[in-house]
Design a protein around this nucleic acid. Structure first.
Lengths: 342, 342
DNA sequence: GTAATCATTTAGATCGATCTAAACGCACAG
DNA sequence: CTGTGCGTTTAGATCGATCTAAATGATTAC
């Protein structure tokens, strides 16, 4: 029992192989009667289209490579879900790879994907990705969309978000509550998203005529933030409010503060970033700057589709706005409980 | 500027196309000197292997299809990460699809993956998947591994976990704390994982000579569990402990109880399932039955590799144990605060 | 010196689709 | 009746690898 090929279908339907090929490709050239005959034959024989063979002759493989730095972070998982939903609708299969923030591994994946003949690439670049990475894709003629992070000094389509408005609202809210000693907890990995958020923090502080109390880099895990809480709170100039680069850090710190008996929103105000589902579950709720990773993913996929359509079109980008979601973890500054006077 | 083919490489290295082909496939038949020459030529010309062409002649496509019911659930995302890590090491690319718990969509994906000529399939079957689904895969000769869920009355390799020991420990812990009125919150989707956990709950209760106080199905979201808290606590026979089918429900309920001023671990004991990272962040920590989705994913991938190696080998399965992680959300039963005497 | 063995290498057919360019059938104008 | 145009269909070459089976050359055996 051999594989059913297009030739078998053609014979069974009494047409030529070429005609059968036109039918599977939904060509308008073929007559309605013939199409019906061929489709019947396909159903009867249980024909399965062979994309591998197709891709050899045609250029397209109906396949897109997606490289994500860390699948276990729900934020990226949701981004991926957004990407997948759009590509799926467009009839494109997603070839997935997890770079684990490893640029070398990422290079390997791109090679593998070239071997697979992907029609395009969506990448959230791992830390330390070099310019060459993006340039090469251009040289090879593989449409590339960067998402959430952008390799410095590179030009490609980009789907991301703008932390500025949300950060501004967050700082304004804190300032409105009387906070003046505001610290920032960053990640210890360096990429454009880190820079972007940190810069928007500086800008917002500037606009409020304040200087950041500190910028503290931490490994982006719940545990490291939780462990860092005592150190952050025992500084000589104790912060009255802290903004975190993401909710992983925000939630970890939330718990770390609770461990110390320091109540977020009462004893110190706390703001996260990403507004993950869990931010609304802790007590008090973690205020957070909201972004929609699913939508960013959709945008990235749409940019890629456009690029595949017009490889030489103008470079485009799509930036999602952010906004501040206030919850119990932000409250008025308290002079009383053990705080150092301003 | 045309694509570099194996023939170009062969010419450049002064060997035949066949020899070059042997080199790219790491065949032991080729001499060391020749191999070096060819590899140099490949590097020099910037040759990229064309998997599409290869797969046409050979059987393999170095590609595996993975279908997950819901990417936005971190539990599945981690499962996927585990699968990816093993397949990646084996040099297999992952073609990803998100069924969204939709069996019809899932059928579509399998077709698409057949078109792509995947060498195997790892599926966590969507709710309502029919027997036919698994049988078809067998008929088509596509190696299939089911994971976390198993379509009833089907035979295939399977990587899952056994809730029994963890559930037993959880119930024993609660009973040890004096609890006798124990309720269970299930999902409203029906699949083998739901049944398995519910049955292990019944078994554990039975072993403790207790009857379940109630079994309440809920949509598997934080919000639905949070909203259900008042109803659960205002029942005529008020539970002193509740076990939840997963941590999404557990965390949602945790928050819902806090909203009511009912303190988990003091006023009511609460147990979740999956032990997601966030279970340790809420206050008090959510006790949970732990499973390692990453490991289950790895197991699934390894089973598939074995199956691809030996298509006619014995059907195998790999079951991860579970264990109970006690945290603040479980504590001694309190007769005082508004509880109905046993 | 010839034959047999072994490790390498190769020519040519082949996988299953798509492409190109030409052919076909039919209608209609001249 | 021939020629032109249009919508449909087709033969045959082609994509880039792998397979089979045979050829090659070096080494050892007799």
């Amino acid at each position: 029992m051999k594989r059913v090929t297009l030739l078998d279908v053609a014979k069974h339907a009494g047409v030529s192989r070429a005609t059968a090929s036109l039918v599977v490709r939904d060509s308008p050239l073929v007559g309605a009667a013939t199409r019906a005959k061929v489709e019947a034959a396909m159903a009867e024989l249980g024909y399965v289209y062979n994309l591998g063979a197709a891709r050899m002759r045609a250029a397209r493989s109906r396949t897109v490579g997606v490289i994500i730095p860390n699948l276990t972070n729900p934020f990226f998982a949701v981004l991926l879900a957004g990407i997948e939903s759009i590509l799926e609708t467009a009839g494109l299969a997603v070839i997935l790879a997890n770079s684990n923030e490893n640029a070398a591994k990422q290079d390997g994946f791109v090679n593998r994907m070239r071997e697979h003949g992907v029609d395009g690439l969506i990448v959230c670049p791992a830390e330390g990705t070099e310019r060459r990475f993006v340039d090469d894709a251009g040289k090879w003629g593989v449409p590339l969309v960067q998402t959430l992070r952008m390799v410095p000094e590179t030009a490609s389509d980009y789907a991301g978000m703008d932390p500025t408005p949300g950060m501004r609202e967050a700082v304004d809210c804190l300032v409105g509550f009387g906070h003046r000693r505001i610290g920032y907890v960053a990640t210890d990995t360096h990429h454009s998203a880190r820079t972007e958020r940190l810069e928007s923090f500086h800008a917002a502080m500037n606009a409020a005529n304040l200087a950041p109390l500190f910028v503290r880099p931490l490994e982006s895990t719940h545990m490291s933030a939780r462990m860092a809480a005592p150190e952050l709170m025992s500084r000589p100039a104790r912060p009255t409010a802290i903004i975190c680069h993401n909710d992983v850090l925000g939630l970890g710190l939330h718990r770390g503060l609770c461990d110390l008996g320091v109540m977020p929103g009462r004893d110190v105000s706390l703001v996260g970033f990403d507004n993950v589902a869990e931010a609304d579950l802790v007590m008090p709720g973690l205020a957070s700057v909201a972004t929609e990773p699913f939508v960013v993913g959709e945008n990235a996929a749409r940019l890629l589709l456009r690029r595949m359509d017009a490889p030489d079109g103008q470079i485009a980008s799509s930036i999602e706005e952010t906004y501040f979601v206030q919850r119990g973890s932000c409250g008025p500054v308290r002079m009383a409980a053990g705080t150092v006077p301003a």
